[in-house]
Structures are given as C-alpha cells and as structure tokens.
Nucleic acid binder design. Structure first.
Lengths: 205, 205
DNA sequence: AGCGTAGGCCAACACCTGTTGACTCCGCCA
DNA sequence: TGGCGGAGTCAACAGGTGTTGGCCTACGCT
C-alpha cells in the first residue's frame, strides 16, 4: 500500500502474463508439478524472465497467491442469511478466480502456501466471525473454514460425484445450516449428553 | 481375497519395510516430493528393490494407499450418537494410521490418488449413510465427507491454530451436529425461507 | 542521431528424478 | 557338494528441474 509509486513499466504486460500463467499452472498442478518452464511457455516468454521478475519459484508463488476473499461485512445480518451469503459468496469466489484452487493445491504440500492460507484465514475470515459472535470467534471461524474448504476439496479437487452433481443452490441450502451452527450456535460442553442444534441463534453463556 | 495363497517369502520383511516407509513419505511430502530414493533410504535398501517389488512409483502408491476406514455399522443407532461416533472414529483412524494423510496429500495433485479417495468414499462411507437414511444417501455421504475431510485438512494439514488447539472432544461436540444434519436432516428445497436445523431427526418427505 | 538501458533470448550449469540391467552373494534343495 | 534362484547392490541412463550469466535487440530519452 505504500510502494506502488513506480511508474508503469514497459514490461508490465509480461509480468501480468507470467502471473496469470503461474496462477493457472499452480491451480491445475500444485506447487511441485507446476514448473517454471511450463509457466514461461504459457506466457510465451523465456523461463529466465520469470527469474528476472520474481527472483525464484517461491517468490513467484507468493506473488501469484495474493488473494482477497472480499467477504461482505455481514454486520447486523440475521445468522441464517449470513451463513447463506457466506457459502454462496465463497463458491462464487472459488469459481471466478483460480487463486483459491492454487492455494489449496499448493498448501497441502508446500509450507509457505499453507502459511499463506493461515494468514488469509486469520486476516479475512476471523474478523467476520468476530462481528457475528463475541464468543470464541477464532474457533468459530476455524470450523467455518473446515466446512467451506472441505466443500471445495470435495467439489473441485477430489470431485466426489454426488457433490459435483449438486446445483449450487442445493449446496448452499445443505451447508448453510452447518455454517450457521458454527457461527452462532452453542455446544454442550464436554458432550456426554445428546447434542442438539439449537433451533434459534441462542448465544453461548 | 483369493491370491494370498503364496507361501511366505524371504523378502516379506523388506516388502513391508518399503510399504511402511512409502506411507510415511507420501503422508509427509505428498506424491511428487516423496521420492523413491528417499523411501528406499528409509527402508535401508536400494532404490532398485522398490522397482523390483512394486514395478513403478504409481503402483507403489496404490499398494501403500490401500485403506479400510473400519466404520462401525451404526444400524439402529440414534443419529446424534451415530454422528458423534462417526467423527470420533474418523479422528482416531486419522491419528493412528498415516495412510489417510498420504491419501489426502497425494489426492490433491495426483489423479490416481483422487480416484482412490472416491473409491473409499463410495465403498465405505456411502453404505453407512444408506443405513441411516434412505433419502439421497450419496449426497448425504458426500456432505459428511466434505465436513470430515475439511476438518482433517484444517487440523492436520493446514494446521489452522484454533482448530489444532481444540481438544478432540470439543471437535466432536462442535462438528457432530453438522454431520448429523447431513446424515438425517432435511432441507427446504430452494431455500428462500430461513433455514433451520430441525431439533430432532425428522425424516425427509 | 546517438546511446544507455531495460526487455528478452539462448545455452549451459549442477542437481535430482524414475527406471534399467548387469553383477554379486547367500541359503536352500538335490 | 554342486548349483540354482531369489535377495540385494552398483552404476548408469535419459530426461527434467530451478537457476545463472552472457549476449543481442530495440525502445525512449537527450
């Protein structure tokens, strides 16, 4: 936010092409199988240009995996609607931008990519959970992440047939209640008693 | 189940050592970063032995990724208890056997590994869902998989701090209601109305 | 018009990968 | 005791990887 004072350079087009190709390859192949040579070929330039502009593969990935979830604020929204909006927004974001796919595919085997996912989680999802419940928002955000990332994993990466076949609206309808439970529901402490999902958004003690 | 008529061979120990080392490496590094040389070194043998006994890397992985979830039948169990048992059993299974970690780490970038996960899903999880609800059991099983794999992803792979910090009992207490919703809950069809998670195991129309 | 410099390409490096084939060694059976 | 087959080792292959440095070219300023 402070160093984009540089004037537009002649190579900006190439830089962008590299970044676009990198995101595509990282998304399709993961970190190790996405080679600099393949990325350079996609961008129609020489592999050495990638090195010149991004230093090394790790920094190229860091640049390609910059991501903003653009989550809505959701302050004052009813939890039911909030969780629906959240799931729907996430699916849209996933399908419209391959950065998330790149992050997941790479994050499973590359520590830096995993760290980036933790950063995005902490900086972008936790605040939303905080706005919806003052009680253990990090845990709530983590549970939401588990459901939402698991959904993306099964639908877009592992491609489990029944999940792939679902309409997006059905996916939202099924998973939103679970997300709502995580965002605003309560839990009987050590769970010996039969659990239940409270019928309304009962806050926790 | 039909061709283990072979007598015990002198090399069985080595074969087992290779398989153990392979599981470890695939679990820790994923498919591409787990090299045959590293696996052989762990097993204290020459890389060519791996080839002799398993043909190639792909078949080695197939052998190492054989897995049985050993899910309990859960027939006639109350849905609340069933989902708790399911989540608890899965966490235990995950922590006690690195095969699942290998499958997830590899399945994200390797098509054969992803296919193996789909097989395990269809052969081992769907039947359980079928026993708990006759209504769209594949979809229900898929949703359960999304929650359960997402949990494993966040807790064991991405290591999101709030999820890692939770006690296992708390994980079960939080996620079991969502799993129960997937296994026996209903969904208002296109979800314009506010959703709710039914308080009891109301079957679907 | 001349020139500095940034953009771009080429060829090579050192290393690592899966995989192969020839070789040695040991234990078992005739 | 001889030999036969399986267990295991060694060295090499062909190809692919990230990365480097030198070279050429052409734009844009003066």
């Amino acid at each position: 936010m402070s160093e984009n004072r540089q004037p537009p350079r002649r190579s900006d087009g190439t830089r962008a092409a590299i970044l676009r190709a990198a995101r595509e390859r990282f998304a399709a192949d993961g970190y190790e199988r996405a080679t600099i040579r393949a990325i350079a070929a996609d961008a129609n330039i020489d592999p050495s240009m990638v090195m010149r502009y991004y230093g090394n593969k790790e920094r190229l990935f860091a640049a390609a995996a910059e991501f903003d979830l653009r989550l809505p604020a959701l302050t004052g929204v009813h939890p039911d609607q909030a969780s629906e909006l959240l799931v729907g927004h996430f699916l849209e974001r996933w399908e419209g931008d391959e950065t998330l796919m790149a992050l997941l595919r790479a994050g499973v085997t590359n520590p830096a990519a995993a760290e980036r996912m933790r950063e995005i989680f902490a900086a972008q999802l936790v605040p939303v959970a905080e706005r919806l419940s003052p009680d253990r928002p990090q845990v709530r955000a983590g549970l939401v992440a588990s459901q939402i990332l698991g959904l993306a994993l099964c639908r877009y990466v592992l491609r489990l047939p029944p999940i792939v076949a679902m309409e997006r609206a059905d996916v939202v309808a099924w998973t939103a209640p679970a997300v709502r439970h995580y965002l605003t529901g309560s839990v009987t402490e050590t769970a010996e008693v039969g659990l239940q999902v409270a019928g309304d958004a009962g806050q926790v003690d």
